[in-house]
Amino acid sequence: MNHRKFPALPSALRTPPVWLVPGLVVAIVAGLLWFSFGVGPGGPQGSIGLGAQSTDESRQTGGEHADTSDLESAKSEDDEKGTKSGTEPPAAEPTSSTTSPALERSVRRFQAAQRRLAERVNQQLERRTQPFSFRVATFNVLGDSHTGPGGNKPGFPDGSPRMDMAISALRSSGIDVVGFQEFEASQYNMFTARAGEYSLYPGLAMGDKSVRFNIAWRSSMFRMVDAHTLSIPYAGGSRIEMPVVLLESISTGRRAWFANFHNPADTPNLGNNGRWRAEAAAIEVSHLTALHQEQGIPVIATGDYNEREEIFCRFTAGGVFSAAAGGSSAGGCAPPSGMQVDWIFGSTGVQFDSYAVSGVGKASDHNMVHSGATLLPAG
């Protein structure tokens, strides 16, 4: 799968503005009319009036409809003069009533096709602006190396049965999009072999480090439109590429960006990484805020941030993001109660409901955090 790396900001992937669609329809209609009838503004009969006066008629009347009583009076005078002189009244100029029946039928067929096209375009626009709901999760699945030989979690089963439990948790909670952390190559292979209903990015394409941060989505619900990675400082400041994907609803065409991160923890082996967590959060918030404001597309971020109050305040300070767990940034930072280190954040345009923290037994040393998410009607 192709991917692109964006260390700062991605190249704009813009949804075509709604105002372009009518112009496109008009261009298509004009082309079809010219091709079908060989007529146009410079054609032999001038433009074909579809419910409007011709240019010549407009010039003759000064752009306004003549009073019908005046027209009738003038016609009576002409008829009377013609009778007195013994001559016939002049022949009427050809009008739309004297056009060929075949041309009239073609025009009617064309108008019907035009109406059907406009109806289809309106239906597509309506689908692309209506609310769309799904369920999103963040899930640190505990790396296979932690429970294998020599691992530091001897009380847990090895990776294979734990992956079965993780997949069961996803299915039972109806998860449509999930950001994984500690998702090692062996677990990636297990997941793709046993949970074929999901697609993933970046897969194994970027090696054993970046595979740990895969985003998975239900293939029957979403398709991937674009993707890139963001270079994030991990333990000791070493950089790792983490994924950002643009997904589109197959049924509605609604789009959202999804990002997934794992910021470094403080451990005896890794040391104190507060500096790198702060730098990582600054990169993540800045990039996703710019992505949302530049394109107007909703953004959802999942991750194990290894922080509670600090990461909540960093994400919500700008007024763009809110947390699925609740809390408020109005008038200061007021984080929710019962915070996890695993978070789901959404930009404006995203509404969360039914937030849950589900235990997964021995599948992992983390709970699975998940929430309903709705892309609100697009303005």
Results as ranks from 00 to 15, higher is better:
Ser199Leu: 13
Leu200Gln: 05
Leu200Asn: 06
Tyr201Val: 10
Pro202Met: 04
Pro202Gln: 06
Ala205Tyr: 13
Ala205Leu: 14
Ala205Thr: 12
Met206Gln: 14
Gly207Met: 04
Gly207Glu: 10
Gly207Tyr: 01
Gly207Gln: 09
Asp208Val: 14
Ser210Gln: 12
Val211Lys: 00
Arg212Gln: 11
Phe213Gln: 01
Phe213Trp: 02
Ile215Arg: 00
Ala216Lys: 00
Ala216Cys: 13
Ala216Gln: 07
Trp217Ser: 14
Trp217Lys: 02
Trp217Phe: 03
Trp217Tyr: 08
Arg218Asp: 07
Arg218Ala: 03
Arg218Met: 09
Ser219Arg: 05
Ser220Pro: 12
Ser220Val: 14
Phe222Pro: 00
Phe222Cys: 10
Phe222Asn: 01
Arg223Gly: 10
Arg223Ile: 13
Arg223Glu: 14
Met224Tyr: 15
Met224Gln: 11
Met224Asn: 08
Val225Cys: 07
Val225Trp: 09
Asp226Ile: 00
Asp226Cys: 07
Asp226Ser: 06
Asp226Lys: 00
Asp226Arg: 08
Ala227Val: 02
His228Trp: 15
Leu230Glu: 08
Ser231Lys: 08
Ile232Arg: 00
Pro233Ser: 11
Ala235Met: 11
Gly236Ser: 07
Gly237Arg: 06
Gly237Ile: 05
Gly237Gln: 04
Gly237Leu: 10
Ser238Arg: 15
Ser238His: 15
Arg239Cys: 15
Arg239Tyr: 14
Arg239Pro: 15
Ile240Pro: 01
Ile240Ser: 04
Glu241Leu: 10
Glu241Ser: 14
Glu241Thr: 13
Met242Gly: 02
Met242Cys: 04
Pro243Asp: 03
Pro243Phe: 04
Val244Trp: 08
Val244Cys: 09
Val245Glu: 08
Val245Trp: 06
Val245Ala: 03
Val245Pro: 00
Val245Gln: 05
Leu246Asn: 01
Leu247His: 00
Leu247Asp: 02
Leu247Ser: 01
Leu247Gln: 00
Leu247Trp: 02
Glu248Leu: 02
Glu248Ala: 07
Glu248Tyr: 03
Glu248Asp: 04
Ser249Asp: 11
Ser249Arg: 03
Ile250His: 13
Ile250Lys: 09
Ile250Met: 14
Thr252Gln: 14
Gly253Lys: 03
Gly253Ile: 02
Gly253Asp: 03
Arg254Pro: 05
Arg254Val: 01
Arg255Leu: 06
Arg255Pro: 09
Arg255Val: 13
Ala256Thr: 10
Ala256Arg: 07
Trp257Ser: 02
Trp257Gly: 01
Phe258Ile: 04
Ala259Met: 02
Asn260Ile: 04
Phe261Gly: 00
Phe261Ser: 02
His262Val: 03
His262Asp: 09
His262Gln: 06
Asn263Arg: 12
